[in-house]
Nucleic acid binder design. Structure first.
Lengths: 341, 341
DNA sequence: CGTTAGCACTCAAATCGGTCGAGTGCTAAT
DNA sequence: ATTAGCACTCGACCGATTTGAGTGCTAACG
């Protein structure tokens, strides 16, 4: 257990380092108006904090910087969440006012304003269709051999993909099939579509037309892989403004990782609900072992929809970012909940 | 007009510099097996070439590097286009075999393989709907006040957007409207849709239902801004591997520019057909004044569809990239032409 | 006994002078 | 016209020195 003074000194060091990106010395802390001890006293405490693993020294004659463990303690016990800046709050409010209608765009726009407000990189995992249901299914023939399958969700989200039409299927058959599917599948959650397709539709279908198994394959193609959420990225280059990343080689790995959508998906998929803070090596991916990732989930009526996240250096403005994500995720939850009804 | 020897020396310097990224001296050129002159002779020629503005000297005691003008001369007169490497050709062939069906994905995948083959950044401006025609229009009500408009092009390309339904319009009205629109608008090129909507549909519409002007507004909303092509980007971080961009500040501007889709659109929109090479300051955007951009358009039956491009340092492997873009753009044109019929 | 002043010590970063060598331009010989 | 020779230039590199911020330890102080 840390003493009150140790906590205060640790806080001061983390705050200072977050601001300046330079090792913090005992002198500069003792000069703060809220600190009444001499540099020597601070030094003693700093030595203790280092022994506890909360601080580190880049080299003997430098000041201290927080260790991963130090940041962790700071985030868990010391942080005081200042509210959201009035200007940021206004930005977000106008965002919701404006984007109520076009929400496909809303998610990517959320990423944009997040990165602008924080000057870090923002990553948003789009509204999953996982818990949404099918509203309408359509199959539009383009020519004799191929067609576009269009899938509309109850949320207004639309997906489409090209499929090839099995031989021996006529236009009238297709209409029958589409009608049958809309009849049987409307209202079914996406993640159950494939199962229901087999259990309910297959039998019925065989009565109408031949080539049943080919059609089934086509229909499966139409709906599979559509449940994948999308990843939106913004401000990827903000990392370049951070002094600890002025070396190109360090940055390369991070930016490469950000270009790989599947990696990001994987990273975000294993996250629990609520606000999560992953500091440095706490992250699963080695590429961002020098970064911190803060994430918040949003949902509608208790159903998880997606995740918004901020990626920055370990020396991140934790307080500000956590407040912001908290605010935005709650508002997004509210917005989507309203849409659901 | 340059002498044969000057042309040979310029070629040698550009080739060497492209390979090594270091100023080329007279000695290293004279050592090449295909050069039979002494360093002193080469030096004299180099001085002349510098006077003509084709070469530059970073400082007095360094070798020469090509100037913008030098690269330009090289690209216009000296370059010899080696064919495409067998491995690259195979990559592209398998790409076409595999991606014939899903071509929404095809364009982004083309960007990916381009950046992988070249180790530069690839930018692809997706198949424009500008010259494509409407295949089918659909309006799916979500609730009483909003609906999803779905637009299918003859290419199989699908766009959708949310619209709000004017008051006093019932389900049956909507069906009538959709039928009318499909009747009148099918086969019309996208860029004429709005005009035809006013000239052909407006009158007819007023006979069916009231609130005609509100509906017109809604329909306009449904189809406008859908003609925008999409930008696909791949290998943005490849620029970081270039020695001339090991300084973060230089790279920041470029990567920032790449994140701004509208800027890229604008950049690509003003490009003429065929293969274009823009070297350094020849580029309109200041952010890429240290880069070269090579672009090639692809089309179908003479109608421009999109542009594929490679962005790299001015010290780019022009020969290789031009061959590659030429090959790929022709194949894409072929592929899309086959699709058209 | 906790706190603090004083001091010797450490070490990265900046500064400086010197050397090295790749490359040039010019001149004179071939 | 070509080339060998040579003096010259200038960035890159190297090592030595200085500087200064910051520490740890000890002894003095209230």
């Amino acid at each position: 257990m840390l003493s009150e003074r140790q906590r205060m000194i640790l806080t001061a060091i983390v705050d200072d380092y977050i601001r300046s990106a330079e090792p913090v010395g005992s002198r500069s802390i003792s000069k703060r108006s809220d600190v009444l001890f001499s540099p020597a006293t601070i030094r003693n405490e700093m030595a203790d904090l280092e022994e506890l693993g909360l601080l580190e020294q880049p080299h003997t004659s430098a000041g201290r910087i927080p260790s991963i463990k130090g940041y962790r303690y700071y985030v868990d016990h010391l942080i005081r969440l200042g509210g959201v800046k009035e200007q940021d709050a206004r930005t977000m409010r106008s965002f919701f006012a404006e984007k109520m209608m076009h929400w496909e765009g809303a998610v990517s726009h959320a990423a944009t304003i997040l990165s602008q407000m924080t000057n870090y990189t923002s990553i948003v995992l789009g509204p999953e269709m996982f818990h949404t249901t099918l509203k309408h299914f359509q199959l539009l023939p383009l020519n004799e051999t191929s067609a576009v399958a269009i899938i509309v969700a109850n949320t207004g989200h639309v997906e489409h993909r090209n499929v090839s039409i099995p031989e021996g299927i006529g236009m009238d058959d297709i209409q029958k099939i589409v009608n049958l599917l809309n009849d049987k599948l409307t209202g079914i959650p996406f993640f159950r579509l494939k199962a229901v397709l087999h259990s309910e539709v297959a039998n019925e279908l065989s009565r109408y037309v031949d080539h049943c198994e080919h059609i089934m394959t086509m229909l499966e193609q139409s709906i599979e892989e559509e449940t994948e959420p999308k990843v939106y990225l913004s401000g990827a280059t903000n990392i370049l403004t951070q002094p600890e990343f002025k070396d190109v080689d360090k940055v390369k790995g991070i930016l490469d990782m950000l270009e790989e959508t599947p990696k990001l998906m994987q990273l975000f998929h294993s996250l629990p609900e609520g606000i999560q803070v992953r500091i440095g090596t706490e992250n699963a991916l080695e590429a961002i072992n020098q970064c911190s990732l803060i994430t918040a989930t949003f949902s509608a009526d208790g159903q998880a929809l997606g995740t918004i996240g901020i990626l920055g250096p370990t020396r991140m403005e934790y307080g500000k970012v956590i407040s912001l994500l908290n605010y935005l995720s709650k508002d997004m939850t509210q917005m989507y909940s309203r849409w659901y009804k």
